[in-house]
Design a protein around this nucleic acid. Sequence first.
RNA 1: AGGACCAUAGCUCAGCUGGUUAGAGCGCUGUCUUGACAUGGCAGAGGUCGGCGGUUCAAGUCCGCCUGGUCCUACCA
Length: 934
Amino acid sequence: MTTSSQSEPDQSLEKTYQPQALESHWYRFWEEKGYFAPSGTGKPFSIVIPPPNVTGSLHMGHGFQESIMDALIRYNRMRGNNTLWQVGTDHAGIATQMVVERLLEAEGKTRHDLGREAFIDKVWEWKQQSGGTITRQLRRLGASPDWSRERFTMDDGFYKAVQQVFISLYEEGLIYRGKRLVNWDPKLHTAISDLEVINEEENGHLWHFHYPLSDGSGQLTIATTRPETLLGDTAVAVHPEDERYQHLIGRSIKLPLTEREIPIIGDDYVDREFGTGCVKITPAHDFNDYEMGQRHNLPLINIFDSDARLNDNVPAAYRGMDRFAARKQVVADLDNLGLLEKVEDHKLKVPRGDRSGVVIEPYLTNQWYVKTKPLAETAIAAVADGQIRFVPEQYANMYFSWMRDIQDWCISRQLWWGHRIPAWYDNQGQVYVGRNEQEVREKYNLDAQLPLKQDDDVLDTWFSSALWTFGTLGWPEETEALKTFHPTSVLVTGFDIIFFWVARMIMLTLHFRRQVPFHTVYVHGLVRDGHGQKMSKSKGNVLDPIDLIDGIDLKSLVQKRTSGLMQAHLKQKIEQQTRKEFPQGLAAYGTDALRFTYYSLASRGRDIKFDVGRIEGFRNFCNKIWNAARYVLMNCEGQDCGQDGSEDYALSLADRWIISRLQEAEQAVGEGIESYRFDLASQALHEFFWNSYCDWYLELCKPVLGADDASAAQKKGTRRTLIRVLETTLRLAHPLMPFITEEIWQRVKSLAGEEGESIMLASYPQADPNKIDTGAVADLEWVKGVVTGVRNIRGEMNISPGKALPALFRNGSEEDRQRLRDNRQFLTRLASLESITWLESAEEAPMSATSLVGDMEILVPMAGVIDKDAETARLGKEIDKLKKDLGRVEGKLNNPSFVDKAPGAVVEKEKAKMVDMRGALSKLEEQLGKINAL
RNA sequence: AGGACCAUAGCUCAGCUGGUUAGAGCGCUGUCUUGACAUGGCAGAGGUCGGCGGUUCAAGUCCGCCUGGUCCUACCA
């Protein structure tokens, strides 16, 4: 491996770009040197990482997000800011507990076999074992957080912060415990918050049942999607103004199967148009019915146990039945009684747990809640008054609409893995909140003999992650880090967790710090596959960022995508699809190419489709940089590159031009990063380096460096420019492509007069308007015009690129003549010309192919090389295009209201355009005429 | 039901407060192994900017309606 420039400074770059070796080398170097820690000087800039699940692994979404954060961090670090990227991981309650339970299941055990203590030990063990995966993968991405400050949402310090927050909120009356309906997950046996419930439309049925009136005078027909809840009905409701049923309000129903008498009530919640206009009311198993039950003092009959099986509150025949079995049974029984009127197909939204996928049951339990309304008010204000800015702005609306209608947040979870709720109960169920049992006894003056039992529940994971920005910086201690880096500068996150995380962070941080958690929220889109599909295991379209970096053969890729599938029947389809899409597997593109791809796709927060063709293109870009650097080094190593402070060098037109272009590129890249338009930043960089530096500048250097007649000063000026522009571009690109830039920079820095141990600590290039030379830009545009004109003739006429052609210039101005005198060598070389001769107006021109640069004509004599028909066609094409455009311009200028009303400058511009076009057109037409006359 | 976003070249996308001949990458066609690079060079083809209407001297860009798509929130049992 030749990546160590320290030991072998003179060794040139390997012939081909091979990312693998150099990436691990430089990462180790940076980390060992401690470069990721804040410098301690400059303006503070800080970002907290959205903490990934400690036992998780890196997916494309992480890759995208961390790449963006790392670019911001490296950019700010190079700008001289005191830059902190705070890193850490989340304990991810439900997700982690589920993983460990699945491991136990493989051994035929459940968590209950182990008991709480032993199970938690097991989870810690699992964290120990797999917890390093994601942080190792972050390193592979080149992420540069301060690892020495790494935190975990269940470390000791965080535990303190969580307790403090819970206890304070409780004491302020903002946390309370209450018995009410919650979203119950019968598989995971825990309550979950509204946000964790996914409502998807599914096909179901609407059953119409007859409920007989108690007095036997008739019946009411109700419509329901959930027949089994009949067993918990405590009323039937109709609209109070519904003439069909009005008279029945106050009377009662004899509830079938139960023989219970339940009232008929009037409530304007009922929609007269839907179903039959009569609704069965089950206050214990439906959120709306619950509300209605409260309004009408209806009893609550809970008919389920925690598995959602029917409990002892139902007739013996149904006890112990699963809810879905009970549904069938109830329908059958009512049918037998002749009470089933009909069954209709019906689409309905079915609530499912986002983790378990099972149908969520509204279920009456005791839970802890955060009273969110008071917290939301200040949180709304912070965004409304601009203390927090969303990028793109439209996400602020999403935030507002949710916050204005926010519901209390259920924060208790019936899990074992998580922050245990700091509350104790005596035998009477009296609750005492405090840091530990001893403190509770002291605080509440409890008798030492009074038995206390801690709450079994843990807190929602998002409760602890809501404290992330200040908790990681040492709160509740008033640390230096907290004072320096809070509020953080920007939060980089996906729109999917604005409610889960961002909103709650804003609420709790404002409450406890009287500070916003961050000034800007940059919301990025979701990474989808090349066809716009969400990446998911079951679709088998997941791409692993690490595989894109290291490459993976087809066999392993198929293996990876088809193993551990929940539904085995998908296996074949996924395998086929994978073999078709990636017949060669994935090549090893390297981290820099992957990162650059992410940036190129990061526009305005919309979803991105990750096309593997794209990363290949940017791997090629890396290769281009590599080879350009090889060429530069080849010409500069061991040579005087004009870095000794003496001024004995001369800058050519090309030198002055590329320096001008570099300023523009610096401007564009900087603006792109500052405005979170990484697509624009990466594009500006790509365009500058490939199209300006490589395609033109390097080619323009060749005649100078290779010419015998070029002076030492000219050669020195060219070498100086060559190496300095390369070196600057590397710094410009470093936040986006950290590895390749470091590798090359180490070889280039001293030649370019730079010092320093690492590019990541070097200064970020700033555009200098004084270096923009508009004259040089115009002159070089002329050179490009001539070269491109000849090349066009050559290309279209199929003349071999090796064949040197004579060229005649005609109708040139004094400026054209001066430009030719200055740049003859460039034109000869780049256009591969044998000679360039001015044709005086009196002279007869030989039959030629023609190209125009302004008013000047370039003639390439046709004798022997150009075929008449091809030239006719080529000119015809040019003429058609000109005519079309000219027509448009003339139309505009002939329109009096345009000339009257448009600003003068616009009109002048159009007039000048018209003159140019007319001139060009007449020259081309004349030329076409001559050729046709042959 | 309410709201947001999107529709530009075969594909993926830029196009800022309305004013160059609408751009890029990939793909495609032709050609060239020239001492940095075939992971490359050079040249080229390809678009009535989803539809209709409006504002304006001027609309891909602003406004309205329509069509198609994505998503969020709420929810009628």
